[in-house]
Nucleic acid binder design. Sequence first.
DNA 1: CTGAGCTCCTGGGAGC
DNA 2: TGCTCCCAGGAGCTCA
Length: 274
Amino acid sequence: MPELPEVEVVRKELEKVLIDNIILKFTVRNTTLRETISSQLYTLRNLKVLKIDRRGKYLIIKTDKGSILIHLGMSGKLFIINNNFDNLSKHDHIDIVLSNNIIIRYNDVRKFGLVLWVDKDIDVYSTKWLNKLGYEPFDQTLTPEIFYQEITKKKTNVKKVLMDGFIVVGIGNIYASEVLFLSSIHPNKLASDLSFRECSILLSHIRETLQKSIEKGGTTIKDYKDSHGNKGGFADYLKIYGKENSPCCICGTPIKNIKINGRSTYFCPLCQKL
DNA sequence: CTGAGCTCCTGGGAGC
DNA sequence: TGCTCCCAGGAGCTCA
């Protein structure tokens, strides 16, 4: 469900309530997420929160004793709860109990998410979860030249390259369709066939689109909500995702929906060139 | 190296 | 009303 903008919106919300606060303990109701919740999490007490980081779609809550690594998967949500603590919903798997009468509650219907503890003597960025990730999209050291150089090494379709996170992180299925449409590039175009000009345009649309979505509070397609239960406002700005058979906003041609690597992909057959 | 296909899991909606 | 089938925003795995 959540792509980089949704995760970044959650990160900012967590920052407001967590920084300099104390995590008293964790309450775990269900250990069977993508990775089984380690029993170590049960025993942790009194962690001082130092920083909330994000790397790609991963959230990292840094404390004085180590880091909590969280991935929301397809359907994970973090809610900030400050009353009615016993009012549990189905799939409320984990509570992070804070000293200031606030609970951060992790809810995940499909259980594809991840909540892990990484001790402070291990560099969280060197763990297998994070060490293969590509550039952050807003990292200015990722220049159009480097982007072009890296992407044209790939002998697969450009949509897959955008989504797999080896070159640039944070783009999921929605934003992949969006940025390719904005860049007039067919999602099935071979990455190695992209011109420098196309790569340069693509990179700037990635940045603009993700930035704008963060400002609007993320995208709501089905059930994405931020930490206060508010829906994201970017869905109104989507130009192509989920709009099969609607006219393309540029040329009026009906938008097509095809499967690429098993995922729904929306594009304009006229505007987007192979 | 590459991709296609499958897997984890649950729920919502369409169609009969 | 109820059943079955398909679909869903992620990502890791195996196999050819």
